[in-house]
Structures are given as C-alpha cells and as structure tokens.
Nucleic acid binder design. Sequence first.
DNA 1: AATTACTCCAACCGCTATTAC
DNA 2: AGTAATAGCGGTTGGAGTAAT
Length: 234
Amino acid sequence: MACQGDKLRKGSWQEEEDERLTASATLLGERKWDSIARLSGLMRSGKSCRMRWLNYLQPNLKRGHISAEEEQIIIQFHGQWGNKWARIARRLPGRTDNEIKNYWRTHMRKEIQTEEEGNFQPKVYSAKPELLYQNGDSTSAWKYSIRDYNSVDDNIGPAGSSLEHYELPSLTHMNSPYETRQYDWIPKLSNDQSQTEVHGEGNGLDWCFCDPAWNSEDSDISTLVSLGSLWDMN
DNA sequence: AATTACTCCAACCGCTATTAC
DNA sequence: AGTAATAGCGGTTGGAGTAAT
C-alpha cells in the first residue's frame, strides 16, 4: 500500500503492475485515478495510472500500424483542427491521442520538413479514387497516389492523367471499408436525412457533414456505438 | 563486430478545464 | 463564489530497437 512519504514509481510498467491496474480499473471504474492508485497498492500516481490505462491497457485499443485510411483521416482532421490530438483520436476508434501525436511527429512531420527544405509546393490532395484504395497494399497505394497527385504542377502521375476534383459521392476516403462505415452512420444521426448538409470543396480533405440538429463534438459516443460499426474493426 | 545515427513510442511534465465541496 | 482535487490535453523526453557505416 502506498503511503505518504513512500516514493512513487516512475518509468516503464511491469506486467504485474499492469495486471493490478487492470483489475482495479475494472473493479472501480475509469475514474478517481488517485483512489485507484492508492487502493491497488501501486506505487504510482493517479495520473500515471490513468495514462497507462488510456494508452495501453483499456480494452478496444487497436494495435498495429496506422492504416492508410486512418492516416488519411488524421491528415484531414489535422488540417481542420491542428494539433488537437484528443479530438482527432475521437474520430479513430481504438487509437489514442498519444498514438496519433506520435504518428504525426514521426511520419507526417518528416514530409512537411522535406517540403520546407526547398521543394515546397502547396498540396492539393486530389487523388484518383481507384488509386487511393485498391486491393493489396492499400497503404502503399494511398501513399503513391497522394504524392503523385499532390499538386497541379506535379506531373509525376501516370502519363496522360488529368487532375480532377471529385464530388462527395466519389470521395476517395469514402471508398475504404472504414470510411464506408462512417458514411453509413453519419446520415443516421439525423432523423431527417434531407437536413444533412455537406460542406467543403470536395477535394477529398476539406469537407464536413453538418446536421442542424446534431453537434458531433458534443454527441455521446454511445450514440455512435449503438449505431453499430465503427468500433467493430475486426 | 563495434560504433554511431536514427526511428519509434511509452511515459512524463506542466498547464488548463472541469468537478466537487 | 471560491478553492481544492481531479481529469484531460498537448508538448517533450528518454530509452529500446534497428539501420547504417
């Protein structure tokens, strides 16, 4: 039992600590982290327990690499909101803000840096849908296309291809299974689907759904869960 | 084989916002 | 309304693993 004066542990978590924390959080609920830290007997701060649970132990966390679809969503929302990692994470079930933040720093920032080191050209993410998602390695397919079509002046793409902007129904990110699910549930959030509006340039990355009666930011996640789907990633 | 450079990600820190009293 | 405790967020750091030399 941690008492006052005991030194709190820091650094990597041991398996036994994970087990204790999981048991305690399951039993006591995902609140009152200081109490959980105390009652579990872990020599950790509540803050540390919360962080470990949220980023590593809680159920429903997805493991493995960020998929092409997820990467696209990250880019899209980062463009809209900037470094609002937690907010972006809410759009990616199973991913944590920490994970997304790390991913952005290691993968995306590198690309931005490269651009800033001389070859900067404003990107117009107008990719051809059939290239953005195809059978096989969707990651490389997406990366290939997003780079090859990244600006109007960039002629790396297949010979004779012309750049186009696509209207919503053929948006590239709606072609993935992941986004298809998004597309499925968004209209369901409105009782009157005719009220659902689509805003944006239709260039694939700068758009939004707006329902006058629904504020996505404030809506309860259980609403989304009950609709089926996004959490069902397997 | 040894060393160095680089990448990735878990974990920490400081600050702000929210909640409870 | 004021204050303390707690939760949440975003930035940063440190270390393990891997690649390059």
